[in-house]
Structure formats: structure tokens, C-alpha cells
Design a protein around this nucleic acid. Sequence first.
DNA 1: AAATCAACTTACCACTTGGTAAGTGGCGGG
DNA 2: CCCGCCACTTACCAAGTGGTAAGTTGATTT
Lengths: 206, 206
Amino acid sequence: MTNSKDQFIEAAIRVFAARGFYGTSIAAIVADLPYTKQALLHHFGSKEKLYGEVLRHISERLVRELQEAMSEATDPRANLEITLVAFYRSALTYRDETILLMRELLDNEPRAAQSKSWYLRGFLEGLSTAVAQANPTRFPDPQAAMPLTYQLLGAIQYFVVSEPTLRQLLGADAYAAMRGRYEDDLRLLIARSVDHPSDRRETAAR
Amino acid sequence: MTNSKDQFIEAAIRVFAARGFYGTSIAAIVADLPYTKQALLHHFGSKEKLYGEVLRHISERLVRELQEAMSEATDPRANLEITLVAFYRSALTYRDETILLMRELLDNEPRAAQSKSWYLRGFLEGLSTAVAQANPTRFPDPQAAMPLTYQLLGAIQYFVVSEPTLRQLLGADAYAAMRGRYEDDLRLLIARSVDHPSDRRETAAR
DNA sequence: AAATCAACTTACCACTTGGTAAGTGGCGGG
DNA sequence: CCCGCCACTTACCAAGTGGTAAGTTGATTT
């Protein structure tokens, strides 16, 4: 079965992740598929439209997974940890897609009309709300939680996209060791950043 | 004075940061300079070699600044905060170069022979040593501090490269507010992650 | 005065790019 | 039985791409 359109998107994710939008030719995308590049153009119209569909494909999964993770809520603090760790694991599983999204962040050129708006906006709002709820004393509203939210997001994504580089830099063993510890240390970072004795006193720090 | 070679490198940083290695044509680099692309090729030989010189240029500054920041040491914990905040500020100042390095991280193709080795290796080692020293109880050796080091690095770089996207996403005002808080929240994150009651009470007042 | 050199320029070139035009074969419906 | 539609192909093309070859210019050295 596996219809050709899905094959194109799957291959496109791989190649866009590896070489970026500009570094990717449609010829390269179809190179390992049993189709010509005109078959791709037949389905998607243009390289940009294909890219747009790829972004949509990814962001839909992302939003879906976020909602699933958040629905496991027990209390706000546990909810935050569950959500972020789920996000971390998902990013590891779909590393190519994570890389692709980070490229989109860097490129800063609206290739697919709305592109960033949907996935990032909803994502950020959802997460920063969760962060704010985990420590309402420190964060009266989601906006106040934005910096910490972004810090945690960065701590997650930056590591995930660095896998090949770190593996090459540290060697396979040292990387494996680091990755083994990473999730636990991430949990610790989350817990400590939203739950600290100094938050009990209502005085402004420094 | 401003010799032409520096002009080429400066322009190259801008364009490489904006569109990546593959998305950048040497014609685009010289577009705003009073030279032809063959002048560029005369100086650097090829696009790849120019890219290599750009990486060298950046990593030299980075290492220099890291050493300067670390030499201000008083005690290990303050040292870590000073170093990381200096790194954050520097990343903001040279945002294009930060973006370019993050692209290099994503690309994972050894375009300039050693490329990643020098800047990243020394950098990571220096930082994780500083992190380990800030909490020797939790981190007996630098390697154990690698995950947290990388988390903090990610929290810094990810935000810096996101400026255009966040500005567009949140609006200029909300972004300015977020950026205003970011450094303080970063300090908090650093302090909490290396100094927490659960690491046993070896209270070092700050 | 002649030779050398760096710092460029103009002229090219082979190749790749995204995209268009014009089909071809098969298949379901009328 | 043929019509239209869909998935897909072959044939092309104009606009770039990185790079080479062969000068030109002006200052410095010999």
C-alpha cells in the first residue's frame, strides 16, 4: 500500500533535516525512491509547498502528543515533568523532525505562510501555562513563565539535535553515558527550577 | 583601511547565518561589497575554505572570551555564573555567529576538516569543569557534569537564536519583556541547578 | 627600466537548480 | 468501447551554481 505521497514526505523530512531547505534539491529527495522528481512536483506543486506539508505533518504530531501528555495530569508539578519528559523522548524518537523545526527557527524566512505560528505559538502557550501552574507564587501568569519555559525547551531540543556532533566529539561510549544520564538530570533541572525553598518567601530575589 | 578580506568574512558571517552554507552563494556574499565574486575566490580559494576561515574567526573569539570570563574567578559558584552570563551576553552581541555555529551543529558534515573539534571540545571541557567545581558533591568529575552543562548551554543558545522568531511570534513588546527577564531567570536557573538543599547542606552564602 | 607580485576584473564553462509542456498507460464509469 | 482522470514519465529550459583561465592595474623590488 504505502502511498507515494507519504513516501515523498518521509524522504523529504530526512533530507530537509540533513541539509536544510536550500541545501535540498527535489532531485535529492526522490533519489532513493522509485519515482522521478516530476512525480513529486505532480503531487505537491512546488518545493515550497512540499515543505509546507512537511511542517504541517510535523506540527500535527507535536500538538497531538502534547495534548496526550498533558491529559495525564495529576497535580501541576507532576504534570509539567511528565509533559516535558514526554516531549524530550518524542524529540529523540523523531530527531530528524526536531532538527528540521530548529532549522526553521534559524531560517526566519516565512517559506510556508503561517509556518511557525501554529505549532510554536500553541506549543509555547501550552507549556508556559503548565510552568506557571507548577509555581503560581513565582509565576502569576503564563507570560512571566516564558523565560523559564524557553530555557527548559532549549535544554531539551539543543541536546537532541546535537547527537551526531556529540557522538563524534566524545566518542560513542561517552555519548551513550551522557545520554543515559540526561533524562534524569533533566528531571532534576525541571524540579529544581520550579520548586525551590526561596520561592516560599514572597520577597523578590536580588 | 578596513582590508577587503575582513569585509568578505564579515559579510560571509551575515549571509551564512541567514541562509546556511548551502543556501549561500558566493555571489550573494559579495552582493553588497564593492568587489566581484572572483575577488573573494582570489582570497579564499573556494567557498568551503572561506567557510573554514569564518569558523576559525568565530571560535577564536569564543575561546578568548571564555578565558577572560573565567579568569575573573572568585569562588567556583560565582565563577560559573559569571562565565555563563558572559557567554549569554556575548551570544546576544554576536547573534549571527551564534546562529552560524548552531547551523554547523545541525549540519553534521565536516565541511572544514576539524571544524567542530576545536571550539566545541575545549568549550565543553572548560564549562563542564566549571560546573563540576561549583558542586563537587554532585559532580565528582567533569564528565558527570556534562548533561547539566549542556542543558545550560542549550537554555542560553536556543533563546539567543530565536530572537527573530519570538519577536514575530509574540510581538516586539512581549519579546522585549521576555528578554528583559531572561538574564535574571538564567541566573536563577544556574544557581538552583548547582545549589540545592538536596545536595546536602554545605551552605555557601552568596 | 625591467621584473615581480598582490589584488583585483572580464569572460567563460560545465553542471545543477526548480519548474513547464506534453505526453503515456491504466482504470473506472457511462 | 471510449472518455476522462489520475499517477507518473520523458523531454526541455532559463536561471543560477562554484570554479577556471587569462588578463589588467598599480605599487614595490631589483
